[in-house]
Amino acid sequence: MVFFSCAKVGKMVTMRGFARVEGGGSIIIGDYVKIWSHIGKTQLSVGKGALLSIGDHTFINTGVIISVRSKVSIGKYCQIANQVIIMDNDFHGVENRDTPEIPQPIIIEDNVWLATRCMILKGVTIGKGAVVAAGAVVTKDVPPYTLVGGVPAKIIRTIQPDVVA
């Protein structure tokens, strides 16, 4: 099982297929997390000194790539569709490609849905209950309970949060 390299794994965590997990950082996985890696390889790359945390009841579908060189925090009850890319770093500069860029943390709050093939780039916070449309590239913070889409992602509309009686 790939969880041998994790700092903490919650109860009832399930893996379908075999994810590629590499790097010298810390991975914390909450309770009831599901990670699929059966059609496309799910990849978790967490560099030395970096932290990836995945909240309770979160689902990560097949072919997802998460690259962490600082910190990526994924909340509870999140749905991450297939082939989503989450990167807290650029690996190199634009003008001078020999100059490494500084990674910036990504925070994905609770109940977020990341649709197929969207990209979440460094320094972004995605608010509670937000939805990122398929193929969107998120370069700026997303307010809670909003739907964003496009390249770069822009607010399409607000979403009514579920009211629990």
Rank of each mutant, 00 (worst) to 15 (best):
K128I: 04
G10C: 00
F59P: 03
G75L: 05
I126Y: 03
Y77K: 09
F4T: 12
A134E: 10
I102M: 06
L51P: 02
V64I: 12
I39V: 14
N61T: 12
G10N: 07
I155E: 09
I120E: 04
I156P: 05
V33C: 05
I27E: 04
I85Q: 14
G63W: 03
V64A: 12
V9H: 02
F59M: 13
T116C: 13
V151D: 06
F59G: 13
D88G: 10
K48D: 15
G30P: 07
V21L: 14
Y77N: 12
G55N: 10
G149D: 05
E109L: 02
I107Q: 08
M87F: 11
P100Q: 12
G129S: 01
I107K: 11
T125I: 06
A115F: 10
V68C: 14
D162L: 15
T99V: 14
K48G: 15
E22V: 04
K122I: 00
I29W: 01
A115H: 10
I29C: 06
N89I: 09
F18W: 07
V138Y: 08
I107L: 10
G23I: 02
D31Y: 06
V2S: 12
C78I: 09
Q79S: 15
V72L: 01
V138M: 08
I155R: 04
V33G: 02
Q79C: 12
G123Y: 00
R157I: 11
R20P: 01
V94Y: 05
G150E: 11
D90V: 00
T146H: 12
T139A: 07
C6D: 01
S5C: 11
R157G: 13
A50I: 14
A19L: 07
K154I: 13
F91Q: 12
I159Q: 00
I29Q: 02
T139P: 00
I106Y: 08
K76Y: 07
V137Q: 08
Q160N: 14
K76Q: 10
I29T: 06
V132S: 03
A7E: 10
N82R: 11
I65D: 11
R69C: 10
V163G: 11
I80D: 05
I74T: 03
Q104T: 09
Q160A: 14
V21K: 13
K76V: 10
I60P: 09
V84T: 06
C6P: 01
K34E: 04
I28P: 07
V164H: 15
P144R: 05
A136P: 09
D98Q: 13
N82M: 10
R157Q: 14
A133Q: 06
I60M: 13
I65A: 11
V21C: 14
R97T: 09
D98P: 00
G10V: 04
N82G: 15
M1I: 09
G135R: 04
I27Q: 00
Y77P: 00
Y145Q: 06
V131C: 03
N61Y: 10
H57G: 05
V148G: 08
V9C: 05
I35E: 00
P144M: 03
D141Y: 01
I66V: 08
P161E: 07
T146Y: 06
A165I: 13
L121N: 05
F4N: 13
I85M: 15
A50V: 14
S73G: 01
K48H: 15
V2C: 12
D141N: 11
V33W: 01
I28V: 09
